[in-house]
Each structure stands twice: as C-alpha cells, then as structure tokens.
C-alpha cells in the first residue's frame, strides 16, 4: 500500500508536468522557473541542514569499534577499523564514503529447521547500493554536456567510455542499464523481503520511484520518443547563463524528466536523501576511537541545563508517594 501510494504520487507529478508544459503550454514555468527554484532550494537547503547538524553537540564519544582498539604494544591494533589517529579516521571515512564499508558487513541470519541460527555474509545490498550510487554519479557528470560549451574533455571521455559497446544509435549507455537494474533491485528488495517490507515507509519508496521515473523518462526520450536535443541545450544553457529562453517544440517528455528532477532536488534537503551530507557528520564514523587516551569533553554548557532535582521530584509526586507509603522529606 505504501509502495502504491508512492507510485501514484510519482505518476501524479509526471501528469502535472505533462498537463502543465504540454497541454497548458507553460514551458517557461516548467523549463526555467521551477528548475532554477529547485536548484536553489537544493543548494541552500543542503547547507542549512548541514549547519544545523554542525550546531548540534556531540555529548559522548560514540565511534563504532569494528576491530582491535589501540592497546598494549604487543597487541596488534586494527588501525582503520578502530582508528586512534586522524589518518586512520580519514581512511575509515574514505572507505565508508567511497566503498560503503559498513554495508559490506551486512549479515543475513538463517534459521535451520533444527532451530540453529547461522549468520551468513550477504553482499547484495552492498553491491546494489554501490552500482546505484556510482552509475548515478556518472549519469550526473555526463549531463554536464548540456551545461557547458565547449564540453570539457573529461565529460566527453566519460561519455565515450560509457557508450563504448557502440550498441545501436544513439549509442546505449552502460550506466543506463546498471542504473535501472540497481534501482529495480533496491525496490524489489523492499517488497520481496518480508522483514524489510515491514519497516519500509512511504519515504523509502517515494525516492526510489522518483529516481526510477527520472531514469525511465530519460531513457525513453533518448532511445524512443526523441526530443529536439539542440533545443534542449539552448534551454539548459540559457538556464545557467540567466538568458532565459524556452524554445518551442522540445517535446513534453523532456518537461516530465526535468520536473521529476526538480522535485528530487527540492525533496532532497527535506528527506533522508540527506545521507549524502550526513555520512560525513556521523559521530559513529568520524570520531577518533581513542576515548581512553583523550578525554572527550561534553560541549554542552551545563549552567544552562535545567536539572530536575529530587526536591522538585518530590514536589511533583508527594501526594502519590504518601498514598503509597513511600517516605518523603517534607510531609504533606
């Protein structure tokens, strides 16, 4: 039901763009105003969220320890899994951010018929997540060909490597295949596995459908219902150089794609997609596991914290305490 609700939400968004840019002819709104607003909301909202996190105190030293802590000299320390130096922390963060180290630890409990439980390594989520994030990154970079003139060599290089199999014309991008397969896997996993379905909410399904919708509408307009790509570039270049113009006759499917991207950009800072910035601010990852060596000072200002003293507690519950025969300091 939650999945269906999210699916209909994405269909409704696509319909808004189809009706708005297609039937009502609001090309400027859907091609220029909404995308620009969305980009602004994305950048400003992202920074605002990160600053809010930066303002939050970390009262305790709570890094996760995944190996042997630094100890006596003859006990071998796991320097990256349980780092006690800044270099170690940086390496651990790099492993987490670039290779999703913690997903690689994923275990799948298996219950045998005789009641024994076994925890077996399960790498599918790690593989799916890695495929999804990296293909998304490449697709994002590849799109810079619409926002640059002349197109930088790096972006042309990514483009030619991505289409190196030279299948059909326009050439098939390998990342398109990987991307759709990975998003489909990430979705099916939520629907098929009962315990993951149980904890899946609308805010889990919605971004998946939204991203799938963006991918499919992009693929559809590249390989099937073709749009006037030169007019698209005229629009995108105008958008980023503030000489806004909305060329006619691009094709409604382009506005569906662009509107779904705009919705994703606006939704991003409001949602759990903020893990993009949040991963760098996780105290369980970015702190040094040397709490025995260095004292972690709680940065809260204690003079501002209101203590609930015993006297206040007794004032609050005196009648009930007396009723139950609990001794009190001040009688009723």
């Amino acid at each position: 039901m939650k999945a269906l609700y999210s699916l209909f939400l994405v269909f409704a968004l696509a319909a808004i763009a189809l009706v708005g840019a297609g039937a009502l002819g609001m090309e400027r709104t859907f091609g220029l105003y909404i995308p620009f607003l969305a980009a602004a909301v994305f950048v400003v909202g992202f920074c605002w969220r990160v600053v809010q996190w930066g303002k939050s105190a970390v009262p305790f030293c709570i890094p996760t320890t995944c190996g042997q802590q630094e100890s006596l000299p003859w006990i071998k320390q796991s320097t990256i899994e349980n780092p006690s130096t800044t270099t170690g922390v940086v390496l651990r963060m790099l492993l987490e951010v670039l290779l999703f180290r913690s997903l690689f630890r994923n275990n799948q409990p298996q219950l045998y018929s005789d009641g024994r439980v076994r925890y077996a390594s399960s790498k599918w989520l790690w593989l799916g997540a890695l495929a999804f994030h990296y293909s998304f990154l490449i697709i994002f970079l590849r799109h810079m060909r619409f926002f640059t003139e002349p197109v930088p060599a790096l972006i042309r290089g990514i483009e030619s490597v991505d289409s190196m199999l030279q299948i059909a014309a326009p050439t098939l991008y390998l990342t398109d295949l990987v991307f759709i397969a990975a998003v489909t896997y990430l979705f099916l996993r939520r629907v098929v596995v009962p315990n993951i379905r149980y904890i899946s909410q609308v805010q889990d399904y919605f971004p998946l459908f939204l991203i799938l919708g963006i991918g499919l509408s992009g693929i559809f307009m590249r390989y099937f219902a073709k749009v006037d790509i030169m007019a698209v570039k005229e629009l995108t270049m105008g958008l980023v150089t503030f000489s806004w113009k909305a060329p006619q006759g691009i094709g409604a499917i382009f506005y569906v794609h662009l509107f779904l991207v705009s919705v994703l950009l606006i939704y991003f800072p409001l949602s759990k997609l903020m893990h993009m910035g949040g991963v760098f601010l996780s105290p369980t990852r970015n702190m040094n596991c040397a709490s025995r060596k260095f004292r972690h000072i709680n940065p809260w200002k204690f003079e501002n914290v209101h203590y609930h003293t015993y006297e206040e507690y007794e004032d609050e519950f005196r009648e009930k305490m007396v009723e139950k025969g609990i001794p009190v300091e001040k009688p009723l």
Binding site: A39, F42, V43, F46, C47, M144, F147, T148, E149, K233, E234, M237, G238, V240, T241, S243, G277
Partner: peptide, 19 residues
C-alpha cells in the same frame, strides 16, 4: 566544496560568449 561542485554549470559559463 559542495557548493562549488554543485554550482559548476553556473560559474563555469561566466564570461563566456552566450550560447
């Protein structure tokens, strides 16, 4: 770093001839 990376299309075109 994030802002510079994300606003690349905007600042990259400053000072270039209009498309």
């Amino acid at each position: 770093v994030f802002v510079v990376f994300m606003t690349y299309p905007f600042w990259n075109n400053i000072g270039r001839a209009a498309y």
